[in-house]
Design a protein around this nucleic acid. Sequence first.
DNA 1: CTATATTTGTGCGTATGTATG
DNA 2: ACATACATACGCACAAATATA
Lengths: 78, 78
Amino acid sequence: MIGFMINPKSVHPAWKQVGMILETRIRSGVLPADERIPTEVELMSEFEIGRTTARKAVEYLRVAGLVTTQPGRGTYVL
Amino acid sequence: MIGFMINPKSVHPAWKQVGMILETRIRSGVLPADERIPTEVELMSEFEIGRTTARKAVEYLRVAGLVTTQPGRGTYVL
DNA sequence: CTATATTTGTGCGTATGTATG
DNA sequence: ACATACATACGCACAAATATA
């Protein structure tokens, strides 16, 4: 099953839906501190979204202060 | 003369250069409070940049707390 | 009320650059 | 030298909000 969590008819845009799903994974401990979250390419295939959407979802997490991004390495849970 | 202010070899990316130029216009009063700043399309032609870059420049101003954006209307100086 | 134009929002794809391992 | 991963930047299309004719 692929990409079933994103609802195009939601009041929330796709990037926010993905961002909130990742936020839940972080707050629930599924993605613990110091863990690397999925790469942009992995998010693209997991949620069947484009690069723009994947990047905006990660940006959402950064703005929320949940992760930090290191170029060339990845994005890590704070 | 068009697009002479953006230096591709700068340490700052194009979106930041445009953002800083607009920031100067605002802080100097060239763009006063309640004034609408140039639209994305206008920024594209003035600085010879793409829409992605124009939008990031405006986002820079929003993050700096200098402007507010109203969908369908434009971006206004605070 | 309707239609059109304008402006920002979302989303896709692609290419190239930079940093890291 | 090479692979991986994020950063920047381009273009395009359509949707949604707003203003105007």
